[in-house]
Amino acid sequence: YHFVGKDITRFHCVIWPAMLMAAGLPVTHTVFGHGFLLTKGEKMSKSKGNGMKPADLVKIFGVDAYRYYFMSDVQFGHDGNISMERMVQVYNADLANTWGNLCSRVFNMTKKYFDGKVPEVPADAAARVANPMLPIAEGLYAKYDACLGQVDFTGAAAAVQELAGRVNLYVEESAPWNLAKKEETAGDLAAVIYNSLEAIRIIALYMAPFMPNTSAEVFSRLGLGKIAACTDIEAATKWGQLPAGNAVTVGDPLFPRLNMDEIDLDAE
């Protein structure tokens, strides 16, 4: 792929390939013209004074959330109409409420019910307790790979969020806080917590290209090695690779909620 702005495609699609061929150099297979970032329907420019500085946004959202927003909410290849309100909305919905909240609640329950260790699941409980995340996780690589092959970052991020949303729903449906009240459902509790932790491990791997620092932190809290060592994502995301007995760390919230009323971009 050769990425260019959509307003300079003539040079890069005609003149530049001709120059490469004349020099006996290889020509790119695909020229991809990306769109413009717009604010209130207008292209950002210095003369209009409607620009948004990346450094200012990073101070508010952090590097990973900044990256995630532009990869997930702005369809690559099209013009993207961005606003602070929309950034906060996506941050709170996808990261604070879904991904960050999932990690926080499952890590806390692991600490509370299993002394901060990945539980060992009894064979009978593993066979008895439903795992609705498994088919989603097993089909995720094909969706994710196809999206990235088509430079559809938004589609890839949405596919991962589908799994994250299903795990949150799974926790609500399974109600581990009720299972913990009875000794006879201890095995079921272990299965629910293990399934949730394993789904988090898999989500972290798929989120790594978007949010490398956050995924590395999640891996660390799961007691795993460096996430950068997982070079074969298809193999690394096979279900059931989280070792029982791993120490799980709760840590601070990954994405504290933001209040639009408390953000002062000018002050940043």
Rank of each mutant, 00 (worst) to 15 (best):
Y1S: 15
Y1T: 15
D7M: 06
T9Y: 02
R10A: 08
C13A: 15
M19G: 04
H29M: 11
M44C: 05
S47D: 00
G51E: 13
G51M: 13
P54S: 05
D56I: 08
L57N: 01
V58T: 02
D64T: 09
Y69A: 05
M71L: 13
F76H: 14
G77K: 13
H78K: 15
H78R: 14
M84R: 07
R86N: 10
N92K: 00
A96V: 01
A96F: 04
T98V: 02
C103I: 03
K117W: 00
V118R: 00
P119L: 02
V121Y: 01
A127W: 05
A130K: 15
N131S: 14
I136F: 05
I136Q: 10
G139E: 00
L140R: 02
K143I: 00
Y144T: 10
C147F: 15
C147P: 03
Q150C: 10
E162I: 12
E162D: 13
L163Q: 04
N168C: 12
L169R: 14
Y170F: 15
E173G: 06
A175E: 12
N178Y: 09
A180D: 08
A180P: 10
E184M: 12
I202G: 08
P212M: 01
S215D: 04
F219L: 01
G223A: 03
K226F: 07
K226M: 01
A229N: 06
P243Q: 08
V248A: 09
P253C: 09
D266E: 14
E268D: 06
